[in-house]
């Protein structure tokens, strides 16, 4: 073999060409044809399931409509995302008129009936938004409530309401917008009804009507004269907060003097306790600490 190999160069291609010579006998093809005929007949006779045919039809249809379907999907996605973006923007815009609702809410919480008369009188136009809103015409109230007041910025009840609204915005933009608009409608209705009620009330010597008249007469006075000392509104606010609580907690029979006495006695008991805690027994002797 080696002698022959030395005489002539045999390439890889020639060796691989030997594979072409690997052929089956003619008998093999006869058998092959018989088997193939049987398989072909089986394939013709065999009924394919209906879903297979339908799937073939659907897949061929989809492959034909691949580009239009893709374009439609992209378009739909774009529309949905733009819609989402717009709705989120509208929610953020709605947050500003939400302050109107805030002042209205404050209006509901700080009921003029519960407020002492002195407090309502001493409340300035900036500070007591609720009280002023209850007595001024709606147009003025709207203007005042849409512009952020210094009281709102200084962390009053309206600020907490804004925080609440911010929390709500994190959850659902659409629901928030819906609720805000609902609240606006409700508060506007409530405000108008309250104002209508105030208009229709007869003018008694002391009460709501006189308060309205007093404030209206104040409007005629120069604005600088309405500005009161900073301590007065604070005191009025505290009194407004304490008054309903004291009314609920104490009975009609107990007087403010009685409450004061109780507080004094509690203070004296605390002092006594502190003084006793400073005394102690140590090593068989009395210890006194200052």
């Amino acid at each position: 073999m080696s002698d022959r190999l030395d005489n002539r160069k045999i390439t890889l291609e020639e060796v691989l060409r030997l594979k072409r010579a690997e052929r089956p006998d003619p008998v093999f093809w006869a058998e092959f044809e018989q088997q193939l005929r049987a398989k072909q007949l089986a394939a013709i006779v065999e009924r394919r399931p209906w879903w297979h045919l339908d799937l073939l039809r659907v897949s061929s249809g989809i492959s034909r409509l691949r580009v239009p379907l893709g374009a439609t999907a992209v378009l739909a996605l774009t529309i949905v995302s733009v819609h989402q973006f717009r709705s989120s923007n509208s929610v953020s815009v709605l947050a500003v008129p939400g302050q109107e609702g805030v002042s209205s809410d404050e209006f509901v919480q700080a009921d003029p009936v519960d407020l002492p008369l002195g407090a309502s009188r001493s409340t300035s136009a900036y500070d007591g938004t609720a009280i002023v809103a209850s007595n001024l015409p709606p147009k003025l109230t709207d203007t005042e409530s849409t512009v952020p007041s210094p009281a709102a910025a200084s962390g009053s009840g309206s600020n907490s309401m804004l925080l609440w609204l911010d929390e709500m915005s994190g959850d659902l933009g659409d629901r928030w917008a819906h609720h805000t608009s609902d609240l606006d409608v409700q508060f506007t209705g409530l405000r108008s009804s309250r104002l209508g009620l105030a208009e229709s009330m007869p003018p008694p010597a002391h009460g709501f009507g006189s308060l309205r008249q007093d404030i209206r007469s104040d409007d005629l006075v120069e604005p600088l004269t309405q500005v009161t000392a900073p301590s007065e509104p604070r005191r009025a606010r505290l009194a407004a907060l304490v008054a309903p609580a004291s009314l609920k907690s104490t009975s009609r029979a107990s007087s403010p003097d009685r409450v004061r006495e109780r507080m004094i006695s509690r203070l004296s008991e605390d002092e006594l306790y502190n003084s006793v805690s400073r005394l102690g027994v140590a090593k068989g002797g009395l210890r006194l600490s200052f």
Partner: peptide
């Protein structure tokens, strides 16, 4: 499982070059 190599024509020539057996 291999088919038989029909060593005529080209294949026979190549095999003849590879061996003198």
């Amino acid at each position: 499982s291999f088919e038989k190599i029909h060593d005529e024509d080209k294949a026979g020539e190549i095999i003849s070059h590879l061996t003198d057996k």
